[in-house]
């Protein structure tokens, strides 16, 4: 008898606790038992029974959405690509064919983050390593030159590349959303698609960065022009159908901004990572660097003082 008393007492105590937690619960012992079960299992793992508790069901519904965002499966959807798809997208990002929209023909409603992330990572290390190696011929030339790995340039390259690959698509996507207003048309690209297009468009700079090792200035600038032209025209072809309806001037201005930002990234990387140490002055002009990176030339300090000297010696 005493044991059963004890048992019942515990039950009521739990019911009281539950009452304080959920004031709307019934005081009947069966009701308390039911809600007790629900609490034990945990509100997040079980869908609220229909009609049991309106506000708790609402709470559960509110909890479910962020939960799905935090699950691993949510992110697996961004990496749902096969090898041939990635190769196909890379190929598409360097072949601007009129009428072939990158988003429509290559992404096909399945934008991935694998390509953008690893293309950016590769570009970061390609820039840092090949920029460092491009200083190497100086070592043989001058005995006083001490080789250093310049590891901090990896951090700088990572900052530049990842900022470009995320912030510019964000701005572009926001601008397009704003222009299209509330009635977003069916043709609008999602943020993920915009990021994907930009990430793949950076691929063209990876071979360019490796080939910038060749110490011939005209070849370096030619490579830069080709890479920027190919990838920027893919970008322009991709975004042209979206902005076409927005008036000719606005559309052209937007595309010009996209193309010039893309080219600016390449030029900045070229000037910063492949610049010779003696000419580490503040922001050299392209002409200056063109002349400065001529082989077997102008590593002496007079390069600073006399700009016309290399040009005159070439004649």
């Amino acid at each position: 008898m005493a044991a059963s008393n004890e048992l019942r007492f515990h039950e009521f105590e739990e019911a009281a606790e539950l009452l304080s937690a959920t004031p709307t619960a019934t005081t009947a012992s069966t009701g308390a038992r039911q809600s007790h079960t629900t609490v034990d299992v945990g509100p997040g793992y079980e869908e609220g029974e229909p009609g049991e508790d309106a506000d708790s069901a609402e709470l559960l519904g509110g909890q479910r959405k962020p939960r799905s965002f935090w699950t691993f499966e949510y992110y697996q959807a961004f990496f749902d690509v096969d090898t041939y798809q990635v190769l196909d997208r890379i190929k598409g990002s360097v072949m601007p064919l009129p009428g072939k929209n990158f988003v429509r023909h290559h992404l096909r409603n399945n934008p991935d983050l694998y390509g953008p992330f690893w293309i950016c990572a590769t570009l970061v290390f390609a820039l840092a390593i090949s920029g460092n190696l491009s200083h190497l011929p100086e070592k043989q030339a001058s005995p006083s030159f001490h080789y250093s790995p310049q590891f901090h340039k990896v951090t700088i390259a990572a900052t530049i590349v990842y900022c470009y690959a995320w912030l510019v698509p964000l701005a572009l996507w926001g601008y397009l959303r704003w222009r299209q207003g509330a009635g977003a048309r069916a043709g609008a690209y999602s943020f993920l698609e915009t990021v994907c297009v930009y990430g793949y468009s950076l691929f063209a700079y990876i071979p360019a960065a490796v080939l910038w090792l060749i110490p011939a200035a005209w070849l370096q600038w030619l490579l830069l022009a080709v890479a920027a032209l190919l990838s920027a025209s893919v970008l322009a072809l991709t975004f042209w159908p979206l902005v076409r309806a927005d008036g000719r001037a606005a559309a052209v201005a937007l595309l010009a901004a996209v193309v010039s930002l893309h080219t600016l990234l390449a030029v900045c990387c070229k000037l910063y990572f492949f610049q010779r140490p003696p000419s580490a002055g503040p922001a050299p002009s392209p002409l200056h660097t063109t002349l400065g990176t001529e082989p077997h030339r102008s590593r002496a300090p007079q390069h600073f003082s006399n700009l016309s000297q290399p040009a005159s010696s070439r004649q």
């Binding site: 690509v81 096969d82 090898t83 041939y84 690893w118 990572a121 590769t122 290390f125 390593i129 790995p149």
Partner: peptide, 20 residues
Amino acid sequence: NRKALVVYPIFLFYFVISWM
């Protein structure tokens, strides 16, 4: 069909360590 996608980052990882 995804082996290459997994092997490439591993290659890059060890390549950077080798470079250092």
